[in-house]
Design a binder for these strands. Structure first.
Lengths: 248, 248
DNA sequence: GGATGTATTTGATCGAGATCAAAGCGACGG
DNA sequence: CCGTCGCTTTGATCTCGATCAAATACATCC
């Protein structure tokens, strides 16, 4: 098997349909066996809770299929999404039992779980693994920082456009698209979940979606399917620079 | 010298006044020598740029003294702070040359820099180092997620109270305070920088500071020194739960 | 002391997005 | 086919924080 050029998605448990990004190409096969020994699959329905804030979590996991959301909630019910996990994303902290946010299945979700304590042992025994996790966590931190700019400074219209662009980009990269002119994809979130992602109300989300449709930036097919006739026109609405953002 | 119980701040370069959190207690002295061999100090004036977004960065660093801010800027000048580095915090990505945000000295800053490429080599040779960096990065990610809740869902007053609480807590932990009733500290940021931190305008920051003073939640001594007569009263204004938040 | 400049406070007004309220639209089951 | 339920859209109004503008505090320099 020829070696891929990137260290992303280049390893799989023996029977996972996706390849886990957490493990790098240089790992030896023995580690794969060790991973197989401590793993199990879990399936969640759309809307089902995976863990609650404050709960103990005795596993870490890769998302195999579906979409899961991390949300923080205030006592009075105000909610903010703080993470969105797509297939191959990693969930959990090897060294910490509890978690500070709710994790919910947004669509039907399959997780490939690894028992936390043995996984931690595997990390200690396998330098490449913690280096790879460090890389992934730093990428997630960069994404969180872009998200903070969106939450703190962008207008509602820019937030919606940015969100559509982010989803389109992640969707496209999963399908191995390049820099296409037009793009079409399904929204993995309800209007309410989009609102929680963007720090808006669902009414504002709906209104701005309508506005972008009216202005020809997007077309809606049903409630959830989006068609972007010009990716560039969408980009222009995000408030971001035209360059940057090649990486997730 | 007796060994401390926590793996935080328990290592120092031979002549750094602070102990770098990035290196753990189990490291052997040979690694300290290796660190010493690739390090150098840099000093920055208040307001001075450390790196610009898009620049190549040939080092990673620990903050030894002072405060540095990470900010993202939009073309039209809107700015959002996305990170605030205090002494012992880590800056940079071992495996990436470029950086996606501006780094600016907020006060006078001293960095203990390590040349990036040799540091990366050291990581590969030293498993504990990447595990420690992973822990620190995950902590930073958790902090970023709380920050996202603040930016997306909190009111201006809650944002200010949360900010004061965060600074007070970090300041107190540096001084090894416990759970004190009252607290006093200096703000490391101007009103404008606070606004960039909180996703507000400087006028709103000023107004809400005045409102908290009027309501007896804080006292101002000069523009920058804050006295909190009741930490609990301040907590009540943040919108957060009374528990959680023992960690930074 | 007076002049200059920067950080901050305070005031008046405006507007984007929240809130409250009511339809519209499918999907599903009877 | 109709009724129900959840999701979404649209409308009317209100409010919090932004914006525009001016005054005040406090350095530093002459």
């Amino acid at each position: 098997m020829p070696q891929k050029s990137l260290a992303v998605s280049d390893f799989a448990c023996s029977d996972c349909p996706i390849r886990h990004r957490a493990v790098c190409s240089r790992c030896e096969s023995g580690e794969m066996e060790q991973l197989d020994a401590i793993k199990y699959y879990r399936r969640f329905e759309a809307g089902q809770a995976i863990v609650w804030a404050g709960d103990k979590m005795d596993f870490v996991a890769s998302v195999v299929e579906g979409v899961a959301a991390l949300t923080q909630t205030m006592e009075d019910g105000r909610r903010q999404m703080v993470g969105l996990l797509l297939p191959s994303d990693f969930l959990g902290r090897p060294n910490r039992e509890s978690v500070t946010y709710d994790v919910t299945a947004t669509t039907e979700v399959t997780l490939c779980c690894f028992r936390r304590v043995p996984f931690q042992g595997l990390i200690e025994a396998t330098p490449h693994l913690s280096q790879r996790l460090l890389e992934m966590t730093l990428d997630e931190l960069d994404a969180a920082r872009e998200w903070m700019l969106l939450l703190g400074r962008k207008t509602a219209r820019e937030k919606i456009a940015s969100f559509l662009f982010i989803i389109a980009r992640r969707d496209a990269s999963l399908k191995n698209f390049g820099g296409l002119e037009s793009l079409s994809f399904d929204l993995p979130l309800t209007r309410e979940a989009m609102a929680d992602y963007l720090g808006l109300t669902l009414e504002t989300v709906s209104r701005q979606m309508s506005a972008l449709r009216r202005d020809g930036v997007i077309e809606l097919q049903g409630k959830r399917h989006i068609l972007v006739p010009s990716v560039e026109a969408l980009m222009d609405e995000t408030g971001d620079d035209a360059d940057g953002g090649v990486y997730s």
